[in-house]
Design a protein around this nucleic acid. Sequence first.
DNA 1: ACCTGAACACCGTTCAAGT
DNA 2: ACCTGAACACCGTTCAAGT
Lengths: 261, 261
Amino acid sequence: MVTDGLRSPAHDDGAAPAEETAVPAEPGSARWWTERALVDRRRRPRAGGLSTERIVETALEILREEGLEALTVRSVAERLGTSNASLYRHIASRDELIALIADHVMGDIRLDRTGRGWRADVEALMLEMRRVILSQPLPPSAGRSKSGSGSGPNMLRLVEFALALYREAGLTDRQAVYTTITMIEFVGGSTNIRRSPAGRGSNGVAGAADLRQLLDGLPADDFPALRTAGNLYTAASADDVFTHGMTLFLDGVASQLPSNQ
Amino acid sequence: MVTDGLRSPAHDDGAAPAEETAVPAEPGSARWWTERALVDRRRRPRAGGLSTERIVETALEILREEGLEALTVRSVAERLGTSNASLYRHIASRDELIALIADHVMGDIRLDRTGRGWRADVEALMLEMRRVILSQPLPPSAGRSKSGSGSGPNMLRLVEFALALYREAGLTDRQAVYTTITMIEFVGGSTNIRRSPAGRGSNGVAGAADLRQLLDGLPADDFPALRTAGNLYTAASADDVFTHGMTLFLDGVASQLPSNQ
DNA sequence: ACCTGAACACCGTTCAAGT
DNA sequence: ACCTGAACACCGTTCAAGT
């Protein structure tokens, strides 16, 4: 399954004189970011013309104002006052656009030390990550879910910051790497589900009544634990769950520090 | 933003005589599952006709054989030998189909006790969840990312099992609920990113060389931690990272047990 | 090198008409 | 109640032709 992304079932192996490009890099992957940096260098933008930057910012506007479904190549072009075909001079596909947006947004994450030790630093970082990811309107994992994700400049900057944090806290290089990746996955996972239908910043409480009703309709004897814990389950806010999960994570990290052994 | 899912910008408030339905429930939400259970009861299937079950199973075939992009309402209809319009007698939209698939797949998760204590039980459960989620071919969070997710019958069955596990381990009701949700989010998050371009069961090692090259091209002084930890970062396998994260999680849970205080 | 109108090959969904 | 052909209103992407 090498020609992923192509629609035609016909492969053209050997037809082209093999210009080293072989398989096109998947948007968001390490190779894609590498190749993109090279291509970007030989651009000759015109006065008042398009640019990747302008495209991404316009796309982000649409995303925030109208949601993911409204974000089409055509809608971006329209808002920019050009034809949709013009965008393909700067991005090769809609997937590329989304990969660019995903990393662009991560640039909003503030990377600050609190001065109150590693645990406070990590906690602040995780809350900040969550804040920014949730400020992204709709595609909970649109960009992040792609394979090889996390290779964009802003994600690398985040990884660098986190690695240093964990190393200074006392973890080994190996532990720091694994813990950093785990942290990123965990925060991402916490924003994937249990967001209320309304979207944005709501806490899941909105759907509590609906969930309550669903549980009430269940066969009484088949879900004893869910029955007794019912109210807690339906009313659990996403923020509280995140705080709890973060505590578990931090406790786990703490138990690996040399000072703890 | 109440008319989510509709394309027309025109609202028809007051036009319809308000048949209690108001806003249509979002596919995968608690209310949607509840309403669906009712509708399913008054079906009168014909001999050899369609059924939601057949549609979901056919869709899953396409998903496994050809990936998410190939899964269209039309392709499902074609494989079933009917017109695409016919499917709309059983599902109201493609989103509904995906929500049904997402929960259907969760039915493959085996819920067994190991007999070796809560920690072994939780570990087995998490590995089993991960196995099944990764066996789902491509939509890492297609169904799970929708708001209010986790209300399908198979997810409820999983939640029930996990709640009982944590309660018996010694957590309070509240802790058990929060820990269960955290666990589900964590496992989901671990399958969202860092899967190799090839898809399936690969461990991220596939893209190691590409990532290595990307790091080598970075400004030397800006990423010191990433530089020194570089090889570990590029070569980290998704399975090893998951195992590490699971250990952090389990250690965190252990520290909350009464026996630990 | 950049931009564009027009077209191609798809989508999901609806609806009137049939059984 | 169920099924369907045909159509509607979109998509992403390509390509020849322009500057």
